[in-house]
Design a protein around this nucleic acid. Structure first.
Length: 274
DNA sequence: TCTTAGACTCGGCTTC
DNA sequence: ACGCGCCGAGTCTAAA
């Protein structure tokens, strides 16, 4: 799925097409995503409203409406948001279509339907932070080695699972957890209790670098990610370990290993990572 | 020793 | 067969 960099690329791509525009109409399929599509609330709070901003928190996009309402979108594994002319033929698995002025549409497409769309009324959005349990944003100042070490206190899990825990750090999934740990030189199975502050600082630094680089590359198109204009990213060309089991390490030529940790494929260089 | 909270793992959702 | 994610159920562990 889109992880933080892909979601950020989509956000930036949507802004010029959507912010400041009115939503003329909303049409939904009846199939449910992770939860049912809130058709009534989309009609009540989105239809006829004007979008004033698109924000991101972790892997979630937040569309803010002039009324103070908000729509929260999560893309799950295969969700896509794209801008299309209304005349473009609909795709299989289009689930929500927002009609915009001048014959344009914002379409939500999701093959596996693990995504999520929530609508919060102005009161709900004002009174209740939907992200209160989420960990810190890895691109913000408060994300430091000290923060990571503090969050890891009293826990034993593998460092990779810890990095993918959105209550610790928001937005890191399987691809970027693998890549970050490669660049930090740490084996993914390392129990977090044993990491020194210096190594946590390295994790924080590499997290920032990898995510920023991936955003600059337009995200990773591993199987089918495309941005809001249908273009692929190219960070997959810079992957050091993810999906490279059995291939030569691009840094030392050792054979990249694979193991399953927490039910997820995990890739590492047995030589570059200790 | 029993209870409980919290940490952790795993299965299931769905399609190609 | 595998998978860019998430949550809830169930298990395990350690503290009280």
């Amino acid at each position: 799925m889109p992880e933080l960099p892909e979601v950020e690329v989509i956000r930036q791509g949507l802004i010029p097409h959507v912010v400041g525009r009115q939503i003329v109409a909303v049409a939904c399929s009846s199939k449910k995503l992770r939860l049912a599509i809130p058709q009534k609330d989309l009609g009540r709070w989105l239809k006829g409203g004007r979008i004033t901003a698109i924000q991101r928190r972790g892997k979630y996009l937040i569309f803010l409406l002039e009324s103070g309402a908000a729509m929260i979108v999560h893309l799950g594994m295969t969700g896509r948001l794209g801008i299309f002319p209304a005349t473009a033929p609909p795709a299989l698995h289009d689930h929500v279509v927002f009609s915009l002025p001048e014959g344009m549409q914002l379409r939500y497409n999701d093959i596996r339907r693990f995504g999520l769309i929530r609508v919060l009324s102005p009161d709900q959005y004002r009174e209740h932070d939907p992200f209160r349990d989420m960990g810190c944003e890895p691109l913000e100042q408060e994300f430091t080695g000290v923060y990571l070490k503090k969050m890891a206190a009293g826990r034993l899990q593998p460092v990779k699972n810890f990095l993918m825990d959105n209550q610790v750090v928001a937005g890191i999934g399987n691809i970027y957890a693998n890549e970050i740990l490669f660049h930090a030189g740490i084996l993914p199975a390392t129990p977090i209790g044993s990491l020194t502050l210096a190594r946590w600082e390295k994790v924080a630094e590499k997290t920032r670098e990898v995510l920023l680089r991936a955003i600059a590359c337009g995200g990773s198109s591993i199987s089918d990610f495309v941005n809001s204009s249908g273009q692929k990213g190219y960070f997959q060309l810079e992957l050091m370990v993810y999906g490279r089991a059995g291939e030569a390490c691009r840094q030392c030529a050792a054979t990249i290993g694979r193991q399953v940790i927490g039910g997820r494929s995990t890739f590492f260089c047995p030589n570059c990572q200790k």
